[in-house]
Amino acid sequence: MSRLHLTFECREQRCGATLDSAPGTTGLLIVSGGNEIRAGAFNGQSQLAAEIARAGFSVFRFDRRGIGDSEGINRGFRRSGRDIAAALLAFRAIAPQVQRVVAFGNCDAASALMLAGGAECDALVLSNPWTIDESEDSTPPPAAIRSRYAQKLKNPQELARLLSGGVDLKKLSRG
């Protein structure tokens, strides 16, 4: 197993991605949820990718446009179908031995995959998909926001990001 950091194009913008390569003909496309970078919360998706690659399956993770190492504007999970499609094309190009792609999404990433009609993947693993209100206001309830920030304050990397100016304080105050 080896890990390759790469970029691919989506609508003339560069997106950051990671491939954990393996010899198997089935691969996993991990779609990150929310504003989460491809490493996942507490590096969980990175660890998961390494474990799956050790089992013989290539894993492709990516940052949607406007998130993490990707250029552009974050258009949210409802409008991420093109990002997922571009990631799938990049995965198939960089790992030609992969003939079957299973996409995994949690929470809003699961909903993004459903909204994209499966994004031309061969199979889906959907965990805890979000239901979608007709309202355009996608602000989570206050209890959910407090819980998220409480978890972040327990993470030394997130504290360092806050202290180094890597956190949008206007956005934080709205939350």
Score class of each variant (00 low, 15 high):
V125G: 02
G72S: 02
A110D: 00
S173H: 12
D168I: 04
S138F: 15
S2T: 14
Q157R: 11
K154W: 01
R82D: 15
N155K: 12
H5P: 04
C10T: 11
A85Q: 01
E12Q: 15
H5Y: 10
G72T: 01
T26N: 04
E120A: 12
L88T: 03
I30E: 04
N43F: 13
R146L: 11
G68N: 05
F62G: 03
H5T: 12
T18R: 09
R100Q: 15
R3Q: 07
T131D: 11
S127W: 12
A143W: 10
Q13H: 15
A112T: 09
W130P: 02
A160G: 10
T18C: 08
D20I: 03
T7V: 05
F42V: 08
D20T: 07
I73N: 13
A85W: 02
K152E: 15
R38E: 12
I132P: 02
K170I: 12
L89P: 01
R75Y: 14
L113S: 05
R78M: 14
A93G: 07
I132N: 03
G105C: 05
I145C: 13
R79V: 08
A90D: 01
A41K: 11
R148V: 10
A93D: 03
L4Y: 03
F42R: 12
P156K: 12
T25S: 12
E71V: 05
C10I: 04
A95V: 09
S32M: 09
Q47M: 10
P96I: 06
L126V: 06
T26C: 13
R79Q: 15
I67P: 07
A110Y: 04
A49L: 08
R161H: 14
S173I: 14
K170A: 14
L126S: 00
G56N: 09
N155S: 12
R38L: 14
L172V: 09
D108G: 05
G105D: 02
V59L: 07
F62I: 01
S164D: 13
T25N: 11
A90I: 05
M114H: 10
G165I: 11
A17M: 03
Q157G: 09
R11G: 09
S32P: 09
I84K: 02
R3L: 12
W130G: 00
K170M: 13
R148E: 13
G16I: 10
T25D: 10
D168H: 00
V125M: 12
Q99M: 08
V101I: 11
R54T: 08
G66K: 00
R64L: 10
A123T: 07
D83F: 08
A112F: 02
A22L: 04
G33H: 01
R65H: 03
N43K: 09
F60G: 01
R78S: 07
N35G: 15
S58R: 03
A17C: 01
V167F: 03
F104Y: 11
I145L: 15
L89R: 10
A110V: 06
H5V: 10
I37V: 13
N35S: 14
D83Q: 06
V59Q: 00
E51M: 13
C10F: 00
I94C: 13
F104V: 05
D122A: 02
A143Y: 09
R148W: 15
G72V: 00
